[in-house]
Simulated scan of single mutants.
Amino acid sequence: MIEIELEPIWRGDIQQKIFRQLLDCFALPGTIADLSNFLDDSPALLGVLAVLLDASVLFNDNGKLLQNRERRLLRAKEVEISEANFVVVDATNPPPADFTPNLGTLPSPEKGATIVLQGSTLGEGDANLKLTGPGIPGYRSVKISGFDSAWWLARREWVIDFPLGVDFLLLDRTKVMAIPRTTQIVISNK
């Protein structure tokens, strides 16, 4: 019998720990979770997707950030952006002009997509996000870099008809942060 050794992110116990971090991030928008203790040499992007995707999930790797092997292990079905539950993008570039994510429907707003934005750095950088809304006492300020500002403008349009909209997951090499559709954002560059 041939034994295949997979990275730790494919183990159930590690996925549970990453999932717990994601729950905390969504409950407390703007909180940055460092996943480096669970990733070994894998990027946060793959660790998060290993938790969220399976054969029942529709996704789109718009940024072509995943390798073929990783796509096979995730088992999720690749579809057009407008049909995807999760869309993976290279956030250092602006969204393409025809980028139209699934916003859900009034009877099923939960079907709105989660946009997984791979950027450069969470927790430091020249852009500052001031976040307000549910789960944030007062406001939370977060510095980031390597996330094109056009994503924030597009998001504003996508969440304008709440409860319809999209949720954002921001990632760098080892960290993740959630911005649900209920969160308001003011951006400044300093």
Results as ranks from 00 to 15, higher is better:
residue 156 R to G: 02
residue 161 D to E: 15
residue 26 F to Q: 10
residue 106 L to K: 03
residue 13 D to N: 11
residue 88 V to K: 00
residue 179 I to E: 14
residue 102 N to C: 13
residue 188 S to C: 04
residue 156 R to A: 15
residue 173 R to L: 14
residue 16 Q to V: 07
residue 82 S to G: 02
residue 152 W to D: 11
residue 188 S to Q: 14
residue 33 A to P: 00
residue 33 A to G: 05
residue 9 I to R: 04
residue 83 E to M: 14
residue 109 P to W: 11
residue 185 I to R: 03
residue 108 S to Q: 12
residue 46 L to N: 05
residue 29 P to D: 13
residue 137 P to I: 14
residue 79 V to F: 08
residue 11 R to V: 03
residue 54 D to P: 00
residue 35 L to Y: 07
residue 57 V to I: 15
residue 60 N to V: 04
residue 14 I to C: 06
residue 162 F to D: 11
residue 123 G to E: 15
residue 170 L to V: 03
residue 65 L to M: 15
residue 69 R to G: 02
residue 49 L to R: 01
residue 52 L to T: 01
residue 10 W to R: 04
residue 87 V to R: 03
residue 142 V to E: 12
residue 137 P to H: 07
residue 1 M to Y: 03
residue 19 F to S: 12
residue 189 N to K: 09
residue 87 V to A: 11
residue 34 D to M: 05
residue 91 A to V: 10
residue 86 F to N: 02
residue 146 G to H: 05
residue 24 D to R: 08
residue 125 G to E: 14
residue 150 A to I: 01
residue 66 L to V: 07
residue 103 L to M: 09
residue 177 M to H: 01
residue 140 R to P: 00
residue 133 G to T: 06
residue 2 I to A: 14
residue 3 E to A: 03
residue 172 D to L: 07
residue 118 Q to N: 10
residue 176 V to R: 01
residue 127 A to T: 14
residue 41 D to K: 09
residue 142 V to K: 02
residue 43 P to L: 11
residue 54 D to R: 00
residue 97 A to Q: 12
residue 4 I to S: 05
residue 139 Y to T: 09
residue 178 A to I: 07
residue 95 P to A: 14
residue 159 V to H: 02
residue 21 Q to K: 10
residue 98 D to K: 05
residue 74 L to T: 10
residue 1 M to P: 00
residue 53 L to F: 06
residue 73 L to V: 04
residue 59 F to Q: 03
residue 84 A to R: 01
residue 155 R to K: 07
residue 54 D to F: 04
residue 86 F to P: 00
residue 95 P to C: 12
residue 183 T to M: 09
residue 108 S to T: 10
residue 23 L to H: 04
